[in-house]
Design a protein around this nucleic acid. Structure first.
Length: 310
DNA sequence: ATCGCGACCTGGTTGC
DNA sequence: TGCAACCAGGTCGCGA
């Protein structure tokens, strides 16, 4: 599921749960998610135990969970990664890969739920649990990964090649426009290139291109600076809209995708709308393969570019 | 140096 | 009904 808005939702959820807490133990159930950790699963478990989290951070689709000692736990959700927070004896979801047992929350004391109140009996929703202390990494396809990044609290060295995302306070729009226009590749390929601008994936690339009325195959260096600036603005706007929606439909206990739920019903104008009318002109949207994946566009609003003349 | 493709995985859905 | 093929929102490394 994860492009920038989804990863940011996870980050914010993790921030409320792990910050200030100590790792009491780590269990690696499958070695693949820690494949990028140099010491392997056993070292991953032992080296993380005893460390204390400070507030999680994000760049693009990457997360890192800094420790008070200056190192960090680097995490990428891949295509299907989730963090879940559960009671240690709760049944494991399928594809649970790594367990982190956390010590008690050392942060501000939370008002205990008044369970004897008749008012509470009316809403059967359990909104909090004082015994949930296990952070779980669940990942079906295992494209995601976890590793310890030495001295990575500020910015993991592994992310040095990842460009700033549009929500980064130090994001430089003019520089991003210049990087885009320096590429001869198709504009969608450039949007997906995380070294140029990070955080944009297949869905939001299609949404941004639809808003800008651009065809995915348009050479990036054929865009005017104004058009490139507009496109970046659309990318940021659509991800901001998704983030605003995502923030509301989550149970704060579960740091992530509940997998199901109505979160998926974001207002998408392009992605997944094959055969449905373009929300601007009414023509049926089409799906076409591009870079071994699906691209959705309006055949009227987003015309295929003429071939480059030189 | 840059670009494009295939590999890496599991599981749900589609079509014969 | 069975089974193969296809599809999934990402990233990396390799060869050209």
């Amino acid at each position: 599921m994860p492009e920038l808005p989804e990863v940011e939702t996870v980050r914010a959820g993790l921030a409320g749960i792990v910050t200030g807490r100590r790792i009491e133990g780590v269990t690696v159930l499958h070695p693949r998610p820690v494949r990028r950790h140099p010491g392997g699963p056993d070292d991953f478990a032992t080296t993380l135990t005893g460390r204390t989290f400070i507030e999680p951070r994000r760049r693009g689709k990457y997360l890192w969970l800094p420790f008070a000692d200056g190192d960090a736990l680097l995490a990428h959700l891949g295509m299907s990664g989730q963090f879940r927070f559960d009671e240690p004896d709760a049944p494991l979801l399928p594809n649970t890969r790594v367990l982190f047992d956390l010590g008690p929350d050392a942060g501000p004391v939370v008002e205990p739920v008044e369970t004897t109140s008749p008012a509470d009996a009316t809403n059967g929703v359990s909104t909090s649990s004082t015994s949930a202390t296990q952070l779980r990494f669940v990942d079906q396809r295992m494209f995601g990964g976890l590793s310890l990044s030495p001295d990575g609290a500020d910015l993991p060295a592994e992310l040095s090649h990842i460009g700033r995302d549009p929500f980064d306070p130090q994001f430089d729009p003019a520089a991003a426009v210049a990087r885009i226009r320096a590429k001869r590749s198709a504009i969608k390929r450039v949007l997906l290139d995380q070294t140029v601008v990070s955080g944009i994936g297949n869905i939001y690339a299609d949404e941004a291109l639809w808003r800008a009325r651009l065809h995915y195959d348009r050479p990036a260096d054929s865009l005017t600076a104004a058009k490139a600036r507009e496109l970046l603005g659309h990318a940021r706007d659509v991800m901001g809209d998704a983030l605003a929606q995502g923030g509301t439909s989550f149970d704060s206990l579960y740091v992530n995708v509940n997998g199901s739920s109505g979160y998926f019903e974001r207002s998408l104008a392009a992605y997944g709308r094959e055969g449905l009318p373009c929300l601007r002109c009414g023509r049926p949207m089409v799906r076409e393969p591009f870079m071994n994946r699906s691209s959705f566009r309006c055949p009227n609003c987003q015309r295929r570019p003429r071939r480059r003349s030189s």
